[in-house]
């Protein structure tokens, strides 16, 4: 059975409207993408959708109470809410540097959560 799905690409602000053709639930082809990233995204999206995760963890010693964090790679979309809940359990102390690993291998998914920016210590 052939079916088509329409959705917007999220890989860049352009947000191309993608039309994906599926054959028996399997990816066949995509149109509407401006660049190759769109084709990759389209196939991933209908196979196993993935999302980046950003959030915050508690921070001490920096004058501000939160450290923004970002995943080093995409996580399965259906694990995003669970992973966000993990962030609430963490507290880190300043100083922090961009790229410091804040959570290693979150939920065992092979992806780390890292600091989005530096935070110096405030005395």
């Amino acid at each position: 059975m052939t079916e088509t799905k329409k959705f917007n690409c999220i890989t860049c602000p352009r947000g191309c409207e993608l039309t994906v053709t599926l054959q028996d639930g399997k990816f066949q082809s995509v149109t509407g993408n401006f660049c190759p990233n769109g084709a990759k995204y389209a196939e991933q999206e209908v196979t196993a959708p993935m999302r980046m995760l950003t959030g915050t963890v508690k921070l001490t010693g920096a004058g501000l109470p939160l450290l923004p964090v970002v995943s080093t790679a995409e996580l399965p979309k259906d694990k995003i809410l669970l992973a966000a809940a993990e962030l609430r359990k963490i507290t880190v102390a300043a100083p922090v540097k961009y790229g410091d690993i804040i959570i290693h291998n979150i939920l065992g998914l092979g992806v780390d959560m890292i600091a989005s920016c530096d935070f110096a210590c405030i005395k």
């Binding site: 860049c12 602000p13 950003t54 923004p68 970002v70 989005s116 920016c117 530096d118």
Partner: peptide, 22 residues
């Protein structure tokens, strides 16, 4: 703006707001 998606044109990669600012 702690979400990511900034910097695709300027830096050729997706950054969070704080990273872009840094």
């Amino acid at each position: 703006c702690i979400h990511n998606g900034f910097g695709v044109h300027q830096y050729g990669e997706m950054l969070t707001g704080p990273t872009y600012a840094q």
